[in-house]
């Protein structure tokens, strides 16, 4: 018992308390390092893979996307009044790997920067070609009306700091 006691490091109690309180007070003067999410958003990195967008007019109906899709999120549909098969998209199954965008020979598929959408039901997550086209237009609108973008910067003093990114459009 005696040995244990002597091996314990000796500290100056009063100094330790003052140090602790001083550290807390010093940190109170620093700005918060949080991202105020609904009002600001984090800037997208280059080549960000969000939802897959579909352009009906460019598509040639080759069905390569449906074949490559590892999650079977894309399936081919028969659209009334159209000779070609067209891809439909299941958001719930999509793993955002982007293979379909890579393989598309006419660039009818493209990435978006959005991947936060809320669905209260399962049904509307599974879209046929027409739905997917309309939905893609809506997502594009959402991208345009986006919130101010911030970029995390390592700060010597605070640790992390968010800076406003000026030209988001240029990066795109």
């Amino acid at each position: 018992m005696g040995e244990e006691k002597s091996s314990r490091p000796r500290i100056n109690l009063i100094k330790a308390h003052i140090d602790a309180i001083g550290a807390a007070l010093r940190r109170m003067t620093k700005p918060p390092m949080t991202l105020m999410f609904p009002d600001y958003e984090e800037a997208w990195p280059e080549g960000y893979r969000g939802f897959i967008l579909y352009d009906y007019d460019t598509c040639i109906g080759c069905s390569l996307c449906a074949q490559i899709c590892p999650a079977r999120a894309i399936k081919m549909y028969r659209v009334p009044g159209d000779k070609k098969m067209r891809p439909g998209y299941n958001v719930g199954r999509c793993i955002f790997c982007g293979l379909c965008v890579d393989i598309c020979p006419v660039d009818a598929l493209s990435y978006s920067y959005v991947h936060d959408e809320v669905y209260s039901e399962v049904k509307p997550m599974n879209m046929d070609p027409i739905d997917w086209t309309l939905w893609s237009k809506r997502i594009k609108e959402k991208e345009k009306s986006a919130k101010p973008k911030l970029k995390p910067v390592i700060d010597e003093d605070v640790g992390l700091r968010y800076e406003v990114v000026k030209s988001v459009e240029g990066e795109k």
Binding site: A24, R27, M28, P32
Partner: peptide, 10 residues
């Protein structure tokens, strides 16, 4: 609010 300030939150 004070706890948030010390932990650098809002």
């Amino acid at each position: 609010k004070i706890a948030a300030k010390v932990q650098m939150r809002v």
